[in-house]
Amino acid sequence: MKDLFDSLKKSAYIGSKVIADKTKDVVQKTKDEVDIQKLKYDNNKYFRQIGILTYKAAQNEISDPSDKIKNLLKEIEYNMNIIENIKQGQVFDQEEVVVEPAEDLENETDVEKVVIEPKKNEEGYFVMRFCKYCNIGNHPDSTHCVHCGRRLK
C-alpha cells in the first residue's frame, strides 16, 4: 500500500511539474506577444511623427527635420530588432534609447483629426466590428483594430 501511495505521489509531482513548466511557457509567450504589440504601437507612433514632420517641412512650417527623422528611424529600427529577437526566442537587454519627440507631437495636437462616426442600425445602436483578439469596437469600415493593430476579419 505504501508503494502505491509513493507511486501516486511521484506521479502527482511529475504531473504538477509538467503543468507548471507549460504554464511558464504560456505566460512567457503571452508576455512576448504583449511586448511585441507595444513595440509595434510605438513604431506606428514614430511613423506618424515622421509623416507630420515631413508634411510640416513641405508646407515650410518648420526647417530641415532630417535629424529628428533620422532619430525616429533609429528608434523604429531598434524596435524592429527587438521584435525579431523576441520572435526568435532570444533574450535581449533592452537598453534605453532616447528619442526626442518631434516638436510637441506626443499629443499630436498639431494634426487635424478626421472623425468618422460609425453607422447606426435600425434600433439606433452603433454598428461596430469587434476585434477577436482584444474585444475593442472598431468602425465598421476598419480593416485593422485601432487598439492592437491586428487585421479585422
Rank of each mutant, 00 (worst) to 15 (best):
T30C: 07
D42M: 13
A20Y: 04
A58P: 00
V34D: 10
S63L: 11
D64K: 04
I19P: 00
Y46S: 15
D42I: 12
Q49I: 15
K45H: 06
V27A: 09
V34A: 04
Q28N: 11
G51E: 05
N43I: 15
Q37A: 08
I14G: 02
V34M: 13
I19Q: 03
T54P: 04
K38E: 02
I52Y: 07
G51Q: 03
D42N: 12
D25V: 11
K24H: 05
K40F: 00
I14L: 11
P65C: 07
T30V: 05
E61H: 06
I50A: 08
Q37S: 11
Q59A: 02
V26E: 15
I50W: 02
A57H: 13
V18D: 06
K10S: 13
Q49C: 11
V34K: 10
T54G: 02
Y13G: 06
F47S: 01
S11A: 09
Q28S: 13
Q49D: 13
E33G: 03
Q49K: 06
V27T: 06
T30Q: 15
A12V: 08
Y46W: 12
Y55P: 02
K45R: 05
D25Q: 14
S11L: 05
I36T: 11
Q59Y: 00
S11F: 08
R48E: 01
E61Q: 12
K24W: 03
L53Y: 00
S11C: 03
T23P: 03
Q59F: 01
Y41M: 00
Q59R: 04
N60I: 01
